[in-house]
Amino acid sequence: MNDKNKTKKELLAEIEKLRGAEHSYHILVETVNEGAATLTDKGIILYSNPHLASILKIPLKTIIGMPFNRFIPKTDMLKFTALLKQGKTGNSKGRIHLKCKDGLLIPVQVSMRALDIHDTKGICLAVTNLTEQKRNEQILKSEQLSRSILEQAGEAIVVCDTNGIITHASNSTSLLYNTNPLLKPFEEVFNLQFKAVRQTNINFSIKSVLEGKSFHGVDAVLLLKSAENPDNLKKFNLLINAAPLKNQQNNIIGCVITIVDITEHKQIEDALREREEQLSGFFNSSPAGMAIVDSNLKFVKINYALADINGLTVNAHYGKTIREVLPELAPSLEPLYQQVLSNGKPILNLEVSGETPLAPGILRHWMVSYFPILGIDKKPKSVGVVIFEITDRQKRL
């Protein structure tokens, strides 16, 4: 007779037959922490222990007589059918999901074996909840990922516990510190000197981070003894980021600090700043008039000599066009700038005459050179100009 056509009374009779034959077995099964059930060869539940009902989140008294595949999601139905078929004649084992009453999918491992008691053929089913195992696997993978990040990170990364003791550190940390920093207080390993340039840098400490405060872009200096010569101190410029480390309950369990060595960058920055200061000093103190005009013919830089020639302050030129600053000379000057921007070729030692706001009505003469200033794409982005006034020389001619 097909299981679907059996009455509830007939199913209960089969259950009683199984219970009578395996009474001791059922007592044992009902006390274990794994789900267990007896199925007909068609997959109808004849018996279930409380733990399986708990996994499925369904009352134990209502589970009897239900087809077990009712709890199998569509994505696992083919696999379950194959396991059931194999379990009828021998043993089968596999991982699938069970769909609980609330729709939640639970990862489980099912084991099945054929059961034959008093001419009643059935299947013994064991169900192991893998939720905790999956969670542990995820934690392990997360830990492995964290270790991989620490091992391969280019920057120094340090993890401290709630006492400020270093529990994890990237390989780069050891290279920076020249020794193993683990299990040592962070502030003992990294005796940092902070530059309180920005408000966020003030009062940086591991204690503050462990109290919940985050720090970003903190400039610091670290002095370390040289491995070759302990009497020599090596200076490192560092950029520090730090934040509290929290668990799923949002409790602080430590902190994470990233340390970026910007020593080389700082040296380059200082060298560029020094060169900029030298160029600015040369530019501003030059007796020749000098300026830089962008592609819109606006002044972006001008020295005092040229500002004096034009009869305006240096600041009065910035952001202004040639036409706004020198309206009388603009018709003759603008084509020269545009020519240099267009073909990228300099115009050297050109004599220019005209009036300026400093001395209206007086004709003045200059020797002017224009040269292109190229951008990254090697195309002219602005024009530099150098001017020598030759009015007195022209008068003597």
Rank of each mutant, 00 (worst) to 15 (best):
N2Q: 15
N5P: 00
L12R: 15
L12V: 14
L18P: 10
H23P: 00
I27S: 08
V32E: 13
A36T: 12
L39D: 02
T40G: 05
T40L: 07
I44P: 04
S48E: 10
H51I: 10
K57Y: 03
I58M: 08
T62K: 12
P67H: 02
F80I: 02
A82C: 11
A82E: 13
L83K: 05
G90H: 07
N91F: 15
K93E: 14
I96Q: 05
D102F: 07
D102M: 06
G103I: 01
L104N: 06
V108A: 06
A114G: 13
H118I: 03
K121C: 04
K121T: 05
V127I: 11
L140D: 09
L140P: 01
L145I: 11
L145E: 14
R147P: 07
L150F: 05
T162Q: 11
L175A: 14
N178K: 11
P185V: 00
P185F: 00
V189H: 15
L192V: 00
V197D: 15
N203I: 00
S205Y: 08
I206N: 06
V209S: 08
K234L: 14
K234S: 03
F236I: 06
L239K: 13
N241S: 15
T263G: 09
E264C: 04
I268F: 09
P287V: 02
V293G: 03
S295K: 11
S295N: 12
L297H: 07
L306C: 01
A307R: 04
K320C: 13
S332L: 09
P335D: 01
V340L: 01
P346D: 07
R364W: 02
H365W: 12
M367F: 07
M367D: 10
P372D: 04
G375N: 15
I376A: 05
K378C: 13
I387F: 01
I387E: 06
E389V: 03
R396P: 07
